[in-house]
Amino acid sequence: MSRSSFCRVLSAASLLLLGLALVPRCTDAWKHKNFTVSDLEHIQLPLNLEYLEAEYFLWAAYGYGLDKIAPYLPQGGPEPIGVQKANLDNFTQDIVIQLGLQEVGHLSAIQKALGPYYFPRVQLDLSNATWANLMDNAFGEKLNPPFNPYINSLNYLISIYTIPYVGLTGYVGTIPLLKGEGAKALVAGLLGVEAGQDAVIRTLLYQYKDELVKPYNYTVAEFTDKISQLRNNLSHAFVDEGLEVPKSEGADGLVTGNVLSANNYSYSYARTGEQVLDTVYGTGSASKPGGFYPKGGNGTIALSYLKS
């Protein structure tokens, strides 16, 4: 190659590298786009759930939460009630650590995106009593002994079956309402990981679907079915399915196994913001706090229902 040809190639390569350096990374593309006020308000609502997921995962795995791991995120919001370290086997603990740190990332991204619309951690109740009440409501009877999610790995996996799925259906319902490209990119990225978390949890539980959850006379699959039925009732819509379904409701109408919850086209169900609050409050009403959120959620949309 002649000296002049080499110089032309080197010059072109330098320009290419310079251009690449100036292009935002795809993973951070949402930072460089505008968000409408409506977008920010819609992203506020799942912030309530991201706080819950982060604290529940981190505490179960480490015995402490955001105040120690990422103290810049809760911004002085009240500490969760009753949360504690779970008695997890090494494999499950490894998974839960990963889930918890993913939620730290989610909160950090939302904090940067919302700016002044970001709010401190809301009051969360993750006590044994709250979980026991949820399971009693799911089965329509008082379980004896009361359900304790912290006692072993299987109970904990059953408990977290209740969480990321509501968040992912909320994100599915939120995306069509967003206007800004940045908002759509951010929520799509959050949705992808929430869906992955739910898939991991459901897969881990699926291998035990026929096992009894001791000391109760109910299998893992029955627990998931009852929890999903409860969430459908609270959401006032059919947007939730357990690990086993009638064959007609399985993938392409050919299987009863249901490792992923989806409609007849294997398309994700969606919840509105109101339905998300109906469900996580455990009251069936976005205007009536309870369950994991004894004082309700925060943000423009959540507060609008509390004031109604």
Rank of each mutant, 00 (worst) to 15 (best):
L73W: 00
L73I: 03
P74D: 05
P74Y: 02
Q75P: 11
G77K: 09
G77N: 09
P78H: 04
P80Q: 05
I81Q: 15
G82S: 01
V83Q: 02
V83N: 06
K85D: 07
A86E: 06
N87V: 08
N87A: 15
L88R: 05
D89G: 08
N90M: 12
N90L: 11
F91C: 07
Q93W: 04
D94I: 01
V96R: 09
I97T: 14
Q98E: 10
L99M: 13
L99V: 04
L99C: 07
L101H: 13
L101F: 09
Q102M: 13
E103S: 09
G105C: 12
H106D: 02
L107W: 05
L107E: 04
A109K: 15
K112I: 11
A113H: 03
A113M: 07
L114Q: 03
G115S: 04
P116E: 15
P116S: 12
Y117S: 09
Y118V: 00
Y118L: 02
F119D: 13
P120N: 11
R121P: 01
R121L: 00
V122Y: 00
Q123Y: 00
Q123F: 01
Q123V: 10
L124N: 06
D125R: 03
L126K: 08
N128A: 05
A129F: 07
A129L: 14
T130R: 10
T130M: 07
T130C: 02
A132L: 00
L134F: 12
L134M: 12
M135N: 07
N137P: 14
N137W: 11
A138E: 09
A138W: 06
A138M: 08
F139W: 10
F139S: 11
G140T: 14
E141S: 14
K142I: 11
K142T: 15
L143V: 03
L143M: 13
N148K: 13
Y150F: 13
N152R: 14
N152D: 15
S153H: 12
N155M: 15
Y156V: 04
S159A: 15
S159C: 08
S159G: 04
Y161G: 03
Y161F: 08
Y161Q: 01
P164M: 06
Y165M: 11
Y165K: 15
Y165T: 12
V166C: 11
L168H: 13
G170K: 07
G170Q: 10
G170N: 09
Y171M: 12
Y171W: 08
V172K: 10
